[in-house]
Design a protein around this nucleic acid. Structure first.
Length: 591
RNA sequence: GGACCGGUAGUUCAGUUUGGUUAGAACGCCGCCCUGUCACGGCGGAGGUCGCGAGUUCGAGUCUCGUCCGGUCCGCCA
């Protein structure tokens, strides 16, 4: 009962041959006197015909249902004139069955696998083994495999070696919440699952592996999003004796080649923009460059304006006033603008001022806006000339704290471009460079923009002098507004590493305890090194055009980080807990 | 921690605004019929804890509160 052909191979070349196939009954059509099965395997579909002349086989075929796994033998025949199916590769032929075996029947499945029937997320995840049979999921996971193979081949050709690093490891100093694993042999102590292999890969550089990579599982116990899972895969890369330019050029080549090889897409030029420029023009450090809209700083114009909404931010150094000119914005209805106002409210913006340009030749008279009556004519004039407005434009304004204006307008920029279908191309990759070393968090403490092992491009003294002014050799690769990955030149000098840690309020003892091994490695001939990590799942998401990261992961978690298929997490047996020296406090045991 | 959307038949949904007879549709499922279909077709049938728990009411799928589950977002994610 071995198949001689995969379903997709059954074409007119085989006419007259007796062949065997195996697969699932994708669909059965029982006409009473003749029965058709579309038999599906991983490559495609082929039609098998059961005629009543072969009595036993015919009556067995009558008992078959969708998703039964069968084996069938028969002669490949040209279909009768007028009955070919153009939608199938195998549509010109059919197999006239002479044998049929049910390898495994199937219960009626809880949802249909065809492209016509939508299914809810909950049902899909609970019956993931069925969901994965659907063409979309098959295609996604196949592309995922092709892409990882392509990446491996590329890196192998560039003399990289793949090295695995531990999953049972130690909590790192900052960053996301760790997943912990209790130690049986050390009561009260815990392993942490890695948030990334950062420290290990730097250690490998000290060990003399000059070009390392790894498809690394990473774990972060933070709340989920459509593009975020608690368990995800990074393509982790590190090199010795290189600068940022070399890393960027190697990765650019890699990404371009992979898109070419696996999708026949030419990504074109990778634009390079600075962090500062990205924030100024797009309000975000991962701009979607397919989107032609830009934030235009108009703070200076409103310094003398009496309108309080603009006057205050215009004269506050932590604030900005940015305008977005939307060409053909006249298409937006009042209702849409109200919705946008509510939308930016999610980001803390108090409002979304706008001006409709109905006839720019008439100056102020040609405008329509709830706010112009509060603004001096001279300011309006310079505004119109600065923005070079045209008839039909709408100008939107964000005014207030820098971070709120940036967050709200960057999200608004994406939304309005989508609504008005403004995207100019399909793919727009870029590198964002010159990140600051630190920023201040809400409590006023320094936090690293990238991570504490990123090298600043200044001396230790200069860094101590003006930490917020220091820039780094860090680089993010951004595609269509998604951060695909990022990396940096690392600190390879103990003194610099200690200086950075000190600025982050991590004292020597703590550093020694948390990652003494890295500090030790830096002191024993660690070469200068740099690298980056690519968010592999996100990359596949972009390549497949998926709306959710779940659609490119075989067995993903729900938003509350549970698995509906396995019902993980689950409770542990009392004996297990005792072995691990774990007792619960303040948790009622469920009955 | 917060905001919003959803939860009704195996599945996808309607019904909830305005509480009122037996909760509907499509697909799927079961039975019968059908020899050229390909999302086959025809006739018939079964199938419901309206997520769960309280409350309001003569009466709740529908209103109120709580809670659980799924999703999107904010915070969070170096």
């Amino acid at each position: 009962m071995k198949r001689t052909h995969k379903c997709n191979q059954v074409t007119s070349d085989l006419i007259g041959q007796e062949i065997t196939i195996s697969g699932w009954i994708h669909r059965r059509r029982d006409h009473g006197g003749v029965i058709f099965f579309d038999v599906r395997d991983e490559d495609g579909l082929v039609q098998v015909v059961y005629n009543p002349e072969s009595k036993d086989i015919f009556s067995l075929a009558e008992t078959c249902r969708n998703e039964f796994v069968i084996f069938s033998k028969g002669v490949v025949s040209e279909r009768p004139v007028g009955t070919a199916n153009d939608n199938l590769v195998t549509g010109e032929v059919e197999i006239i069955a002479s044998d049929l075996d049910i390898l495994n029947p199937s219960l009626p499945i809880p949802f249909q696998l065809d492209e016509y029937s939508p299914v809810g997320e909950e049902t899909r995840l609970k019956f993931r083994f069925l969901d994965l049979r659907r063409t979309e999921m098959q295609d996604n996971l196949r592309l995922r495999s092709k892409v990882s193979t392509s990446l491996r081949t590329y890196l192998d050709n560039e003399d990289f070696i793949e090295i695995e690093t531990p999953l049972l490891t130690k909590a790192t100093p900052e960053g996301a919440r760790d997943y912990l694993v209790p130690s049986r042999t050390f009561p009260g102590q815990f392993f942490a699952l890695p948030q990334s292999p950062q420290l290990f890969k730097q250690t490998l550089m000290a060990s003399g592996f000059e070009k390392y990579f790894q498809f690394a599982k990473c774990f972060r116990d933070e709340d989920l999003r459509a593009d975020r899972q608690p368990e995800f895969t990074q393509l982790d890369i590190e090199m010795s004796f290189v600068d940022s330019k070399e890393v960027m050029s190697l990765i650019t080549k890699m990404i371009k080649q992979v898109f070419k090889e696996t999708m026949s897409v030419d990504l074109g030029e990778f634009v390079e923009i600075t962090y500062h420029e990205a924030i100024e023009k797009y309000g975000v450090d991962k701009p979607d460059l397919r989107n032609p809209l830009e934030l235009i700083e108009v703070k200076e114009l409103f310094k003398e304006c009496d309108f309080k909404v603009f006057n205050e931010p215009a004269n506050d150094k932590d604030s900005r006033i940015a305008a977005i000119k939307v060409p053909n914005g006249k298409l937006l209805t009042r209702k849409q603008i109200d919705d946008y106002t509510e939308f930016v409210g999610n980001y803390g913006a108090k409002g979304l001022a706008y001006i409709r340009v109905e006839d720019p030749s008439k100056g102020k008279e040609g405008l329509q806006s709830p706010i112009i009556k509060f603004i001096e004519d001279s300011i309006i004039e310079s505004l119109l000339s600065t923005l070079e407005v045209q008839e039909g434009d709408i100008i939107f304004f964000g005014a207030g704290k820098r971070s709120i204006v940036n967050d709200s307008l960057s999200a608004f920029r994406d939304l309005v471009a989508k609504d008005l279908d403004l995207l100019t191309c399909e793919w727009a990759p870029c590198w964002v460079v010159d990140f600051p070393m630190f920023e201040k968090n809400r409590s006023g403490d320094l936090t690293p923009l990238h991570h504490p092992f990123t090298a600043p491009n200044c001396t230790t003294d200069e860094l101590k002098e003006d930490p917020l002014g220091a820039l780094t050799e860090a680089y993010d690769i951004v595609l269509n507004g998604t951060e695909l990955g990022g990396g940096s030149v690392r600190i390879h000098d103990r003194l610099m590493q200690e200086t950075v840690l000190k600025l982050l309020n991590i004292n020597e003892k703590e550093a020694e305890e948390k990652f003494g091994f890295l500090i030790a490695a830096l002191q024993h001939g660690c070469p200068p090194h740099a690298g980056l990590a690519i968010g592999f799942d996100r990359m596949i998401m972009l390549m497949t055009g998926s709306d959710s990261i779940r659609d490119v992961i075989a067995f993903p978690k729900t938003q509350t980080a549970s698995c509906l298929l396995t019902e993980a997490p689950g409770q542990a047996a009392q004996e297990q807990l005792e072995e691990l020296h774990i007792r619960f406090h303040g948790l009622e045991k469920e009955d």
